[in-house]
Design a binder for these strands. Structure first.
Lengths: 226, 226
DNA sequence: GACTACCTAGAGTATATACTCTAATAATAC
DNA sequence: GTATTATTAGAGTATATACTCTAGGTAGTC
C-alpha cells in the first residue's frame, strides 16, 4: 500500500481508538515507523488528513443513503439503512467526538459538514415519506416529518457519545459495534407511534432484536427498571 | 469577591465562549490579571476547576428537576422544566462540548456524571409518569417510558451541538439562548404522539411558541422545506 | 551513466501548556 | 508590635506539539 494511504488508514485507526485530540502527527508517524518529515511530505498538515478522512466518511454515508425512487421501500430497506448508518458511525467514530473543535479549525470541513447534515436530514425525511407510501408508517405533514427527522438525526449521531459517557470505565476501550447498534432500538422507539397497524407487530419484533441485552451493558447504574 | 470565586466564574465564562480546549490556565490568569502562581494557589490543577464548575451545574439541574410528589403536574410545570433545563444547558454549555475528553481525564467527573445522567433520566421518566397521572399524556408501560426518556435526554443534551455544527460561521460566537430554546420544539415533537386529546391542542400551541423562526436562523441551508 | 521525479530520514524549531518555586506582601491573631 | 497564616507575583521549567529543512536515497528513462 502507498504510504499516503497507510497514513490515512492508521490515522483513522488511532483517532477512533484514542480520540483526535490525543493523537499527534508524531504519534501517527511513530505508529507507522516513518519519519515526521515523510508524513508531512504527503500531507500539508493534520487538518488535511482529517479532511480527507471526512470525505471518505461522507462518500460512504451518501452511498448508503441512496434511496430508490422506482419502487416502494420495504422493512428490509429500513433495516439496511439503520444498520448501514450505524456501521458508518462506527468506522468513523472519532469524527463526531470532537466535531465542534474540528469544524472551528477547518472552514472547509465546517461548510462540507453542514451540507452533509442537510443531505442526511433530507434523506431521513424522504425515507419517512417513502415508508408512508409503502404503508409502513402513517403519512405525516411535511413540517412534522422534518422535525421528526431531526430528532432521528440527533439520536443517531449522539448515541455513541451517550454510551461512552455512561460507561463506568474509560470510554475508548470497552465499546463494541454491537452495543452501538442498540441505538437502533432508540431510533425505532421514535417511529413506534407512527407505525400503521399492519406493520406495528413486525417493527416491534425488529426493535426487540436491538434491545439492550443487560442493564449493565448500557453502562447504566443498578436501576433494574431499564 | 474572593479570588477563588472569580477564578471559577471567569473560567466558566471563557470555557463557554471559547471551549475548554482553547482556554489554558494561563489564559484564565491573564483574563483576571492575576499570576499563574496565584491561580495554582487556589486550585491544584485545571481539572479541579472544571470539577467544581460541574458540581455547580449538577446542583442547579438537580434543583430544577425536583418533582413535587404531593400534587399533579400542570402544563406550566412542564414548561418550567423545559425552560429551566435549557437555561442550565446554556449557562454551562462548555461542558457538553468536550464531555468525552473531560470524562477521560477525570475519573471523579466520569463517575459523578454517570450518576447525574441516571438521575436526570429517572426524573424525565418520572415527569412522563406524572404527566400521565395528570391526564396530559397517555400512560405508557415502563419500558417504553424509559426508552422515550432516553430519547428526550439525547435531544436535549445534543441540541446545542447540532446548532453549532449546523451554523455557517464559527460556532462559539453567534449562538443565542433564544435559538437554544428552539430545542424545546424538538422535545415537544417527541411528546406529540402521546398527548391526550384533552391537552393536544394546548401543547401544540405551546410548541408553536418555540418553532424556529426563520429557516436561516437554524443555520440550515436554503432548503425551504424546513 | 546521468537525469529526473518521487519519496524518506531525522534532526531541529518555534510555540504553547500545565504547572512549580521562591520570595514578597497583606491580613489576622495574640 | 510581633508572630503566623493566607495570598500574590512572576520568573521559570519540563514536556509536548505541529511543522520545517536539508540531505540523501530509489526508480524509471533515455
Amino acid at each position: 500500500m502507498k504510504t499516503r494511504d497507510k497514513i490515512l488508514l492508521s490515522s483513522l485507526e488511532l483517532f477512533n481508538e484514542q480520540g483526535e485530540r490525543n493523537v499527534t502527527t508524531n504519534h501517527i508517524a511513530a505508529y507507522l515507523a516513518i519519519s515526521p518529515g515523510n508524513l508531512y511530505y504527503h500531507f500539508r498538515n493534520k487538518s488535511d488528513i482529517i479532511y480527507e478522512i471526512f470525505q471518505e466518511y461522507e462518500k460512504l454515508v451518501d452511498f448508503y443513503l441512496d434511496i430508490p425512487e422506482d419502487r416502494l421501500l420495504t422493512l428490509d430497506d429500513m433495516t439496511f439503512y439503520l444498520e448501514s448508518v450505524f456501521d458508518g458511525l462506527w468506522s468513523y467514530r472519532f469524527f463526531h467526538r470532537d466535531l465542534e473543535y474540528l469544524l472551528d479549525r477547518d472552514p472547509r470541513l465546517r461548510s462540507d459538514y453542514r451540507e452533509f447534515t442537510n443531505r442526511c436530514l433530507a434523506a431521513i425525511s424522504r425515507i419517512f415519506e417513502k415508508l408512508a407510501d409503502a404503508g409502513i408508517v402513517e403519512p405525516q405533514p411535511e413540517g412534522l416529518r422534518a422535525a421528526m427527522s431531526l430528532n432521528v438525526w440527533l439520536v443517531i449521531t449522539n448515541w455513541m457519545a451517550f454510551l461512552k459517557t455512561a460507561h463506568a470505565a474509560k470510554a475508548s476501550a470497552c465499546l463494541t459495534i454491537h452495543e452501538l447498534k442498540q441505538g437502533i432500538y432508540q431510533v425505532l422507539t421514535l417511529e413506534l407511534p407512527y407505525l400503521t397497524p399492519a406493520y406495528r407487530e413486525q417493527v416491534m419484533a425488529l426493535r426487540e432484536k436491538y434491545r439492550p441485552t443487560m442493564p449493565e451493558q448500557k453502562g447504566m447504574l443498578e436501576s433494574p427498571a431499564y
